[in-house]
Amino acid sequence: MSFEHDLLAILPRLRRFAASLSRDRADGDDLCQAALERALKARDQWQPGTRLDSWIYRIMRNLWIDEARARQRAAKTFAPAEAGEHVGHAGDRDIEAHVHLSDVDRAMQALPDEQREAIALVLVEGLSYKEAAAVLGVPMGTLTSRLVRGRGALIELMGEAA
């Protein structure tokens, strides 16, 4: 069966992963499209018999990290604490109407990248620890500690609603 067909079958999940990493849906789709383009171009590097989805998760994640680093360099003025402050009081905030973010989106965005990607792969995509660690290229222990810290932060950010 063709590479394109295999891609089509996993594309909805890839798109979901991109959305969970990104600031908003538009950014998520841009990321997914970019990962798809790169995967098609680099198809010879994929080893048949290994998991195509893991391979593309990895491509996507690397693209996202590159982009996130570039963005961080460009926006040193961003105050990370702010995202946490208005969680739980979202209803009061004008900002919500214009950003259209749910508590979940906002809490995910407030996470450090390394925690967000771990949470996205395991809690959202349902990968096993072993698979997620392989995608991220980190030891299992590193993955699990990121999952513990990331979850703690999410629960704090989302309050009792979690």
Binding site: R15, G28, M108, A162
Partner: peptide
Amino acid sequence: RLRERLAGHYAPIAQEPLP
């Protein structure tokens, strides 16, 4: 609850028509 909420939050995206 956290896992369910996160998974549930993003799940609909995988059901949407592809761009």
